[in-house]
Design a protein around this nucleic acid. Structure first.
Lengths: 201, 201, 201, 201
DNA sequence: TATGAATGAGCATTCATTCAT
DNA sequence: AATGAATGAATGCTCATTCAT
């Protein structure tokens, strides 16, 4: 990795932080410059404009998120365990690099063409992977597959609004609870199997 | 309702529309004025400043959302039906007044004191009602109650990002699918009850 | 005096107060309306526009100031006593209606044609009276008369910047000190010396 | 002096000119930008806001005024000559840089904290110097010293309202007349008369 | 590479004024 | 005589972006 690329990574880190904190629209180029400890003009060596910074942050974040998920799933076959892998991978990424995931969740709608189309493709890719995991559960219909996938995304994309660091448990614990909810629902008591497994671990 | 109040309602409608479309930060007072067909200066008869407009939109939306939910739940006792009521009320409101719900979901973080505190109280009120519905399910723990409630909110607050009008079914249908998912999960096949009801209606 | 005129006097009082406090340019019509406890629109029954309010305040103030001075001088003949009368009349008016005199002193330059010309005429009238008093002192030249008159005006128009109510003495006391200064100067001890240098050069 | 500082001086010159002409409140940032031949936004490289421009103008003016006076007084011992020095220094500065002195005189009350306190300190410093000069005259009391000093300030701060360039004589001539007035007053002819009434009461 | 002065467009807001009531 | 909703122009200021250095 060249020195330029390292500097560029640093710039994107700063962008993610500022975008996550203030939102894309409220974040000014000077805010970012301050966070990166560089002049505003200097930033333009690493992007063509402000919108491009958002694009780069989203692109980088989605690619590593997908890579992690693909890596994680490549070792697991059981549907229930695969579902857990989806949760735990996403939540681990969130706890790891919260600013990037928050930017991704909250500022995707600020993307404009042509970058927005490229990011939407990555989003679609991520969607397909997760959807594929859910599709392996028997008895799921086309309609309920879409709803279930979107519901799952809603669940994990909402986490940053309520998660309290140090209080709400780690990624694995949270992933276990959410996996259980998605697998068994709230009414397991009504189910007759006395020994149904509550969660995967 | 006075003529002034009617005009004010009209202003808030326009605000909700513009905020939902562009986001609070990107929405300019002139955008709103255009949507309401009024001069920019004239808007200041109905608010003290732009932030106040967001506050008023959120306040009005949350209050009617809560009112609808309380009304709906007042007729229902069965936990499963109550859960369905939560979904169907929220989704009906969304299909009814999407701009307000989108504003509520996407721009809550743009609220500043002192309005933010008041809205947070309404949010808390809504949370408590929904949480109460979930708490009536046996076998739920303190931790999983919080996670389940937040997961439910994530699910319904995410709907606006993927829902396609005229394609994805009405509020009742969607509510039924989501209720089923929350009640029974994805793995009902593993449950032994051959005749477990998939959903409430 | 009609009820309308009484109300108009009340409006001008409020204007003088606001103009004196904030200056003509910073004072808004709404500031004045608040001070007068009337709506902004209502003020326009007593003036044609904001500029006219300033004109009316200045006109009224100058006229009563001149009237008082003419009245006071009509009883006095001795030049020294007449000089004292100039000071004491002006200072009494200042302590009596400070807002009007402050408005007159600080905001005269905000007057625009055609009102400004009319007020300048009143100002000229006031000037002529005071100048006439000074002209009665022997040994004064055309040049020094002008300088002395302007110096006198500078002195009394500056009072509002430093006068502390309840501390700096009443109008009569202050008038006495200033009269003495203008009559005898700072170096009375050197007087009688037939060869004292009048100035440095 | 850096190029930046030179440009900043140029900006302050333009500010002084516009403030003197229209007054601080009426002067718009765009007026100043026009006078300086720079964009409105560009001005903000030399100040934090409009108020700061006024502060900078006043600060610069007071400092050089004080410096000139201290320099001038350092060569003179005789009280009468020192009084002349006060007048001639101030009036020379006025003829030299009228805009700054007019701004100082007319817009000081538009200063807001925290700048106003700093300028007040400079004003106090200037006052103390002048007051010290007057205090060296025998027979002056505490009360009359204050009145005399303020009267002197009133006199010189009023000059800009009546002085006609090319008609009313130079700084030295004017200073001589005013010094004479302050030293000897209007009634020198009456002096030596042991029973002349000092004032009327 | 990096800076920071500079710009022109845009921002939220305030204003004097009008006018239907 | 008085109100207050409404307007269009102007306000101070911030912005993303450019470019000479």
């Amino acid at each position: 990795m060249t020195a330029y690329d390292q500097r560029r990574e640093h710039v994107l880190d700063g962008c993610a932080q500022v975008f996550a904190e203030k939102g894309y629209d409220s974040a000014s180029i000077r805010d970012i410059a301050r966070a990166v400890e560089m002049s505003a003009g200097g930033l333009y060596h690493y992007c063509s404009n402000k919108q491009d910074l958002l694009y780069q942050v989203c692109d980088r974040a989605f690619r590593s998120l997908i890579a992690r998920l693909e890596e994680g799933l490549s070792h697991v076959d059981d549907p229930q365990e695969r579902l857990y892998t989806v949760f735990v991978t996403h939540l681990t990424y969130f706890l790891d690099r919260p600013d990037e995931l928050i930017t991704l969740t909250e500022n995707l709608s600020s993307l404009t063409p042509p970058g927005s189309a490229k990011i939407r493709e990555l989003q679609r890719c991520y969607y397909d992977i997760v959807s594929g995991v859910l599709a392996s559960f028997p008895g799921i219909t086309a309609t309920s597959l879409r709803v279930a996938t979107m519901t799952l995304f809603g669940s994990i994309n909402w986490v940053h609004t309520w998660y309290r660091r140090g209080i709400d448990g780690g990624a694995d614990e949270l992933a276990r609870v959410m996996t259980d909810l998605f697998l068994n629902g709230l009414a397991p008591a009504y189910k007759c199997s006395p020994s149904s497994p509550k969660h995967v671990d």
